[in-house]
Lab assay of single mutants.
Amino acid sequence: SDEELKKRIEELVRRGNKDEARKLAENANSDEARKWWEKLEQL
């Protein structure tokens, strides 16, 4: 689900694993996940 995906992306970003988070968001084929990633990346 998008919610689970967003949690995983956020967790990866928090751990400093941005590349992994980006790949996850891009491969998810989910606009919501991509937007979430872009938002987190700004922080």
Rank of each mutant, 00 (worst) to 15 (best):
E20V: 03
L5S: 01
E38M: 09
L5N: 00
S30T: 11
E3R: 06
I9M: 06
N27H: 11
R15K: 13
A21R: 00
K6F: 15
L40A: 08
K6W: 15
A33E: 02
W36N: 01
A25F: 07
S30I: 04
S30Y: 05
E38W: 05
W36D: 02
I9H: 00
K23Q: 12
D2P: 08
V13N: 02
R15L: 14
S30K: 03
D31K: 06
K6E: 04
W36T: 04
W37N: 02
K7R: 14
Q42L: 11
R14M: 11
I9D: 00
S1M: 15
E11G: 03
D19F: 04
K18A: 07
E20L: 09
E32Y: 09
E32C: 04
K39I: 13
R22V: 04
E26F: 12
S30V: 04
S30N: 10
R34V: 10
W36S: 02
G16R: 00
A33L: 15
V13W: 15
I9Y: 01
I9W: 03
N17V: 02
I9N: 00
R15D: 11
E26I: 10
K7A: 13
V13Y: 15
D2E: 12
L24M: 06
D19G: 05
N29C: 06
A28T: 07
L12S: 02
L5G: 01
E4F: 07
K6D: 02
W37C: 04
R14K: 12
R8C: 11
D2V: 14
E41V: 15
E4I: 07
E3A: 10
N29S: 09
E32L: 09
E3V: 08
K39T: 12
L43S: 09
W36Y: 13
G16F: 01
E32I: 10
R22H: 06
K18L: 15
E11N: 04
R34H: 05
E41N: 14
K18Q: 07
N29Q: 12
K23D: 07
E11W: 10
K35Q: 11
K6A: 05
E32H: 06
D19H: 05
L40H: 04
E11A: 07
E11L: 05
D2A: 10
R22S: 05
V13L: 15
R14L: 13
N17G: 03
E26T: 08
E38A: 11
G16E: 02
E4R: 05
K23R: 12
E3Q: 09
L43G: 09
L12E: 04
K7G: 06
K39V: 12
K35H: 09
